[in-house]
């Protein structure tokens, strides 16, 4: 699914969360949105999903989302940074999503087990009582099982341990071959593993965009004039290390 934003602006009262953002994500491309807290990443993905009203245009496959919201929503899956604190049980959640998307519950279970999550063990437990990692795995399993055309991930591995994170990266490789992916992340590792292109947001504007490899080499940071990058690159000639140091200025975790 192609995602296009044309001069998108979003105000929350006097706060300008997005300023004239224009962006095209071609079908099948994997893009990471990077930026410090409050830079507009979450607002941007909420605008794409039609959760907030914006000035400008958001087009999915060339059409406004409200043109046929159910059909479009069926092609979009989302893994939120903070899974919902639902009193519903895991089984209810899986049942509801399966009903809405026409999925087989067993498909969700298969994906979950590939993430080392035995759904049977948490089947009757309220979602809000699950650990952060288990909730995250459940969200990922529901999203991947939906076989979306557009997958939106907000810090998808933040609560996962190392082994689960590696399994997630494997699963991602396997299931997102032709899928458009928009990733919000502060994690260097996630950007390296999941994205081919990076868009850096600062104060609601696109500050830099380019290849993920260039970003990881620190070119984005140099181009943006992030303090200390030039110095650190001089001291540390290897690009990734230099960018890793300076990337923290963008709120990234290395």
């Amino acid at each position: 699914m192609q995602v296009e934003l044309r001069k998108v602006t979003k105000r929350f009262g006097s706060v300008l969360a997005l300023r004239n953002v224009s962006l095209v994500v071609p079908s099948g491309q994997k893009v990471a949105l990077v930026g410090p807290n409050g830079s507009g990443k979450s607002t941007l993905i909420r605008a794409i999903m039609g959760m907030v009203a914006v000035e400008g245009e958001v087009l999915l496959n060339g059409r406004a989302p409200f043109h046929d919201p159910l059909r479009l929503a069926n092609q979009i899956a989302y893994v939120p940074q903070n899974p919902p604190s639902l009193s519903a049980s895991t089984s209810e959640l899986v049942h509801t999503v399966s009903l809405l998307r026409g999925l087989k519950e067993s498909a969700v279970q298969v994906i979950a087990s590939s993430l080392n999550l035995n759904l049977g063990e948490v089947w009757n437990r309220p979602v809000r009582e699950l650990s952060g990692g288990t909730k995250e795995k459940l969200m990922v399993a529901l999203a991947v099982a939906a076989k979306p055309s557009l997958l939106i991930l907000d810090e998808p591995t933040a609560s996962l341990d190392t082994a689960s994170r590696l399994r997630f990266f494997e699963l991602f490789e396997q299931f997102t071959v032709d899928v458009t992916v928009i990733l919000c992340s502060h994690r260097f590792e996630e950007v390296r593993q999941l994205a081919r292109r990076v868009v850096v947001l600062e104060a609601g504007q696109i500050a830099w965009e380019g290849e993920a490899s260039d970003f990881l080499d620190g070119q984005a940071l140099v181009a943006m004039g992030v303090q200390g990058v030039e110095d650190s690159q001089e001291r540390l000639p290897t690009g990734p290390t230099a960018s890793a140091t300076a990337c923290k200025d963008l709120g990234c975790e290395v």
């Binding site: 959760m51 059909r71 069926n74 899956a77 989302y78 939120p80 919902p84 604190s85 998307r101």
Partner: peptide
């Protein structure tokens, strides 16, 4: 509680 953010990402 984040229910909407999840629920309205569904059809």
């Amino acid at each position: 509680d984040g229910t909407f953010e999840f629920l309205f990402s569904q059809p």
